[in-house]
């Protein structure tokens, strides 16, 4: 939790997070009474929810970008500190990833559930939905946070005390945006029964989709692990 405190002590990070919360609250307020009274078809619910799902990725995206832009890059100056602490390189990379995952998860899940409640999507108002949503996002955010933190540690050199270079920032934003959009497109096209299952419309989860889900998780976790290891190695080999 100390890492989260370090993130938020950065004024630019705090201001951006406040701005993001205002944005989320605005969307939630706008969601109230969007759905007309009366029975709502599952298709409409699903379609409406998907729209929120798209919006939900913005906090995640934004948080990962801002963490890298304002915090991790600034901390490259504190890289020497990691080399003085026992297993410091490993701790630095992993703690940043854990903190970024927790922040992303907190804001995104809270936002989705608030949006569901505000828009009156009763189908999604269940404990099962909240649990499945959180569990599935843990993997997504962990992989994305691993990528962000690894990218920052591997490709930012810390020579610039004022933050990352514009070119590096643009490359990062492009890569993350492309990755998130592709992921979202892939999920929408191939995992169509997931939300039906967690909302209770479907009692049995199809084996093919379950296998796909497990394979994806495995790929994400392996990829995250490789990236973090590389970042640790880079930090370990760095000379001050």
């Amino acid at each position: 939790m100390k890492e989260i405190r370090i993130f938020f002590r950065n004024r630019t990070v705090s201001v951006t997070v406040i701005f993001m919360i205002i944005l989320e609250i605005t969307v939630i307020i706008k969601s109230v009474n969007v759905i007309p009274d009366g029975s709502v078809s599952p298709f409409f619910s699903f379609s409406f929810f998907q729209k929120h799902l798209i919006l939900m990725f913005f906090p995640c995206l934004l948080i990962n970008i801002l963490i890298m832009a304002f915090s991790v890059t600034a901390e490259r100056q504190n890289g020497m500190l990691s080399k003085l602490l026992p297993y410091g390189e490993s701790l630095m990379v992993r703690n940043k990833t854990a903190a970024a995952t927790v922040i992303s998860l907190f804001f995104s899940v809270l936002y989705v559930i608030s949006a569901v409640i505000a828009s009156g999507l009763k189908t999604y108002l269940s404990f099962k939905f909240a649990v499945f949503l959180t569990a599935s996002y843990i993997f997504v955010f962990y992989a994305l946070s691993s990528f962000s933190v690894s990218f920052a540690f591997m490709y930012y050199h810390g020579d610039n005390d004022y933050g990352p270079e514009l070119k590096q920032m643009l490359i990062y934003i492009f890569i993350v945006s492309a990755a998130v959009s592709s992921f979202y497109y892939f999920i929408s096209e191939n995992m169509i029964y997931f939300y039906e299952f967690i909302t209770g419309y479907r009692r049995v989860y199809p084996n093919a989709e379950f296998i796909l889900f497990m394979v994806l998780t495995f790929i994400f976790m392996t990829g995250a692990r490789i990236m973090l290891k590389k970042a640790e190695k880079k930090l370990y080999e760095e000379q001050y």
Binding site: K2, R5, I6, R9, N10, E75, Q77, N78, M80, L81, L84, L85, P86, G88, L91
Partner: peptide, 28 residues
């Protein structure tokens, strides 16, 4: 090993107390 570098490597946004707690945590 204790090292006192010329350049500051401590987190400027933390107080001495917070920084010390952070370091003590890392040293278990």
């Amino acid at each position: 090993i204790g090292y006192l570098p010329f350049r500051n490597v401590l987190y400027g946004n933390l107080t001495l107390k917070e920084m010390s707690h952070y370091l003590l945590g890392q040293y278990k």
